[in-house]
Design a protein around this nucleic acid. Structure first.
Length: 874
RNA sequence: GCCCCCUUGGCGGAAUUGGCAGACGCACGGGACUUAAAAUCCCGAGACUUAACAGUCGUCCCGGUUCGAGUCCGGGAGGGGGCACCA
């Protein structure tokens, strides 16, 4: 890529090329000096809280950040111009594993690594010229932040929203550490490559399930959220209605409890199946080595997801027989089956092979009865049979005694009623959602403020003793959690009895940090977690913007945590984000040389023959499809390079043009060049006209020439369309309308060069240029600010009001409407607007082309849509 | 396997939600300026037929509703995403 040239200086001093670098620095300094973007609560003004998902401080910003923050800044600056009191803060999601990895690899302390990264990224972000209130900046690894989080945790504990229980973790036996699910690759540790073991540890949980129905129901009211995200959350919560049924076991004094959503198919049941981890399975395994061996086999399979997916359905007949609750003569064999999950329902099922695919596969393998009990409405019962595919569609019940003839829904209700009456079952609503495990056996996270005492058990730290700070003197020369092996940090007096006890060495999942940061921005320096007055003023976030990859976890945790702290009295809202927008990724072509080595875009170029080749050795390069920019594929463009070469405005403009914000954006060199050309074009339009225009705020002349009128109409149409585009998050459409306005201005030649303003041509030109500059402001703020200044405006553009379209100027006196024959376009008709239908019809039929097209055919009907279209039917 | 979304010129995309398909940008071609180039400005362009006027076809495919379908309905193909033995 060749750097564009900032000069040559053009035709004279006043025509000097726009210098983005110095101009951008100048206005960034001006905004900072004026504290333009620092927000304060002002009850007399309507507030608007714009937030982009805060970044993890990896060290450098990437194009995804640029796109995200460019969009957020459009909204923030636009709402400011519309008179809102805007809050637009920024901070850092700074705890987490990468800092510990860096510590291990480079022997640098996580804190040092993190804060240096933040300093670097802050500089990069500031070079983008975002309208951020930097006075509210904080970092989640600041003691000031995480100590407040510890207070919130104590409140959650008091309100029974946090608790401790045993839970399975992925344990890497080589690194002596717990692994997150995404660190387990093919059943092995991502770094050590050793097979991961499942271990049980006592861990902290947040009781998200206490709000599960509310979290589901409230999705309906999140009207400014993408439908897709609401659906994903609903699926994740996974509410299903069914019944819990108890089966008595013939051979022993016990019952097996199953959960089912298809209790209507009970007469088609042919077996029961227990999870390998079911309590009864454990009992049986203790008595029977064969069962123990089978269970062990299932567990071995259990480590690798891939194997589970492909695994055959396996079962082991325990020899036990369960009694059918409605058929005294029928006994159902009890199996242990590898596809029954202990985490869901009761860890046991009844199998109805005819109407469940898994049960059918299982039944075919073990030769069990397949009895259809739901018959599609267009088939006779005797004619219906199930082959390889279970029937899960609608129908009437059959072969089912007292249920025969009922619908599925009626059958479900009847079984539930009889089970409850007979005291062997209940209606039950089950959820897929599990409580949120927040313990991480890690150093670089917020310490969980509790103490383990041999006498008193788990004791919360007294609030007065907070914060529990991380010790600095830790080493990363070995695997495992440094907090565990710290000599003094973990030794503490029990808050309850005073005896020597041990500190909790687990830290919080970093999703906890990001589950309330948006609320902390309202009062970032408060001595308590949240200042109610500030939070009540600013919350909820009016517009949240970020990647769709957080559609489930982060957004669900934030919704839960807001409810949790609402219950504790810290906040007055239950939904944190009124509006949500999920933006697409930034993509780029990929390049590989003949050896299959990935190449950076800077390492390849197109040769004279039009082929992509390596710059260093000329070898031909395979151009791969465009993919999300990633280091592993080397298809990244560094925003810092782009801003250095073209300026922040150009980078931002390119991010907003062409691609709809929710879709992926394809990075191209020609695209950024085009954006850069346009910024120069705007500059020229303003520069060349500025000296000829009437002074700022001149009163409108009494009359306008036709050309001036036409320009004014274009201007006001652009105002309407650009505004509409921003409101609807269609920035690419706003950009197109701004191009049109710029094109109109570029071809606007004032006929009367004199300053005499009787025809209003210069006045209309100023109106148009000012509108252009103001509307470009949210997208290219520095260039717009410079233009505003050149136009002789005294204040900052950042404080200027958004233009309003004058409806009177939008209407065109003469309009062109389409004339169709039998629905096909044949001609157009120029006519004054709002003419009576009869006149339009007559005029349309009188058109030469229509007369010829209709010829001698009888006109059967003429449809006139006012000011739109005429359709002649013959 | 289940659920959801998408498919419009060479490319990214637009179309007031049923009313002139292809706005705007990119790439491309032609021209102006220039000794020349860059930059800038102007013009052209969906495909096919035609010397031209003009005509025919055209929003993934097939069918339907309608005076009229990119838009609504039914079926199919291709691409993408989410969840995944959830009983």
């Amino acid at each position: 890529m060749v750097a564009p040239l900032w000069s040559p200086p053009g035709r004279g001093i006043s025509m000097a090329r726009y210098n983005a670098k110095t101009t951008e620095a100048k206005w960034q300094a001006a905004w900072a000096t004026a504290k333009t973007f620092e927000a304060t609560e002002d009850p007399s003004k309507e507030k608007y809280y714009v937030l982009e998902m805060f970044p993890y401080p990896s060290g450098r910003i990437h194009m995804g950040h640029v796109r995200n923050y460019a969009m957020g800044d459009v909204v923030a600056r636009y709402k400011r111009a519309r008179g809102f009191n805007v809050l637009h803060p920024m901070g850092w999601d700074a705890f987490g594993l990468p800092a510990e990895n860096a510590a291990l690899e480079k022997q640098v302390h996580p804190a040092k690594w993190t804060y240096e990264n933040i300093a670097n990224m802050r500089t990069q972000l500031q070079s983008m010229g975002l309208s951020l209130d930097w006075s509210r900046e904080f970092t989640t690894c600041d003691v000031e932040y995480y100590s407040q989080q510890q207070k919130l945790f104590l409140d959650l504990l008091k309100n029974d929203l946090a608790y401790r229980r045993e839970s399975w973790v992925n344990w890497d036996p080589v690194e002596h550490t717990v692994l997150a699910n995404e660190q387990v690759i093919d059943g092995c540790g991502w770094r050590s490559g050793a097979p991961v073991e499942r271990r049980q540890l006592s861990q902290w949980f947040f009781r998200i399930t206490a709000f599960q129905d509310e979290l589901l129901a409230a999705l309906d009211d999140l009207e400014r959220w993408p439908e897709k995200v609401r659906l994903m959350q609903a699926n994740w919560i996974g509410r299903s209605e069914g019944a819990r049924l108890r089966f008595s076991v013939k051979q022993r004094e016990t019952e097996i409890e199953v959960f089912t959503t298809r209790q209507d198919t009970i007469f088609g049941a042919s077996f029961l199946a227990l999870s390998p981890d079911h309590a009864l399975t454990a009992e049986l395994a203790a008595e029977n080595p064969e069962i123990a061996e089978f269970v062990a086999e299932c567990r071995r399979l259990g480590t690798s997801e891939e194997v589970i997916e492909k695994a055959e359905k396996l079962g082991f007949d325990t020899g036990l027989r369960a009694r059918h609750p409605f058929l005294p003569d029928v006994e159902l064999p009890v199996y242990i089956a590898n596809f029954v999950l202990i985490e869901y329902g009761t860890g046991a099922i009844f199998g109805c092979p005819a109407h469940d695919q898994r049960d059918l596969d299982f039944a075919r393998k073990y030769g069990l009865v397949v009895l259809p009990v739901v018959i599609p409405s267009d088939v006779e019962t005797a004619d219906f049979s199930v082959g390889k595919e279970a029937y899960v569609g609608p129908g009437r019940l059959a072969n089912s005694g007292f249920l025969d003839g009922l619908t599925i829904e009626e059958g479900k209700a009847e079984i539930a009623r009889r089970a409850e009456a007979g005291n062997f079952g209940t209606r039950e609503v089950m959820h897929r959602l599990r409580d949120w495990g927040v313990s991480r056996q890690r150093y670089w996270g917020c310490p969980i403020p509790v103490v383990h005492c041999d006498a008193c058990g788990v004791v919360p730290v007294n609030e007065a003793d907070l914060p529990i700070t991380l010790p600095d003197d830790v080493t990363f020369d070995r695997a495992g959690n440094p907090l565990d092996r710290h000599e003094t940090w973990g030794v503490v007096d029990c808050p309850a009895c005073g005896k020597t006890a041990r500190r909790e060495t687990d830290t919080f999942d970093t999703f906890v940090d990001s589950a309330w940061y948006f609320a902390r921005f309202c009062s970032p320096h408060a001595a308590q977690p949240l200042d109610r007055a500030a939070v009540d003023y600013w919350m909820p976030v009016d517009q949240y913007i970020g990647g769709v990859e957080h559609a489930i976890l982060h957004l669900l945790y934030a919704r839960f945590f807001t409810r949790a702290i609402e219950k504790c009295g810290h906040i007055g809202v239950s939904e944190p984000f009124e509006g949500l927008f999920t933006q697409g990724m930034v993509c780029h072509e990929t390049y590989r040389d003949p050896e299959g080595i990935w190449l950076e875009p800077t390492e390849v170029a197109r040769n004279d023959a039009g082929q992509m080749v390596r710059l260093d050795n000329g070898a031909q390069v395979d151009t791969g499809r465009s993919e999300k920019m990633s280091k592993s594929r080397k298809n990244v463009i560094d925003p810092e390079d782009i801003i250095e070469r073209y300026g922040a405005d150009t980078a931002r403009w390119f991010m907003l043009s062409d691609s709809p914000p929710e879709r992926d954006l394809e990075w191209t060199d020609s695209g950024i060049e085009g954006a850069w050309r346009f910024s120069g074009r705007i500059w020229r339009i303003v520069e060349e006209a500025a000296g000829e225009l009437p002074p700022a705020d001149s009163p409108a002349p009494a009359s306008f020439s036709d050309q001036a009128k036409a320009l004014r109409r274009v201007t006001h149409q652009a105002i309407g369309a650009v505004t509409d585009g921003i409101e609807r998050f269609q920035f690419n459409v706003s950009v197109a309308r701004l191009y049109e306005l710029a094109n109109a201005l570029a071809s606007y030649k004032v006929v009367d060069a004199g300053i005499d303003e009787t025809n209003g041509e210069r006045w209309a030109q100023r109106e148009a240029i000012e509108a252009l500059v103001v509307m470009i402001g949210p997208m290219m703020p520095h260039l717009a600010e410079e233009g505003w200044h050149i136009l002789g405006q005294s204040g900052l553009l950042a404080d200027a009001a958004w233009p309003l379209a004058d409806p009177a100027l939008l209407v065109e006196d003469t309009i062109t409407i389409a004339v169709q024959l039998n629905g096909k376009m044949r001609a157009t008709l120029e006519i004054a607007r709002d003419q009576p239908e009869d006149d339009v019809r007559v005029a349309a039929l009188a058109l030469e082309k229509m007369v010829a097209a209709v010829a001698d055919k009888p006109v059967r009907r003429v449809i006139v849509v006012p000011n739109r279209i005429v359709n002649v039917v013959v």
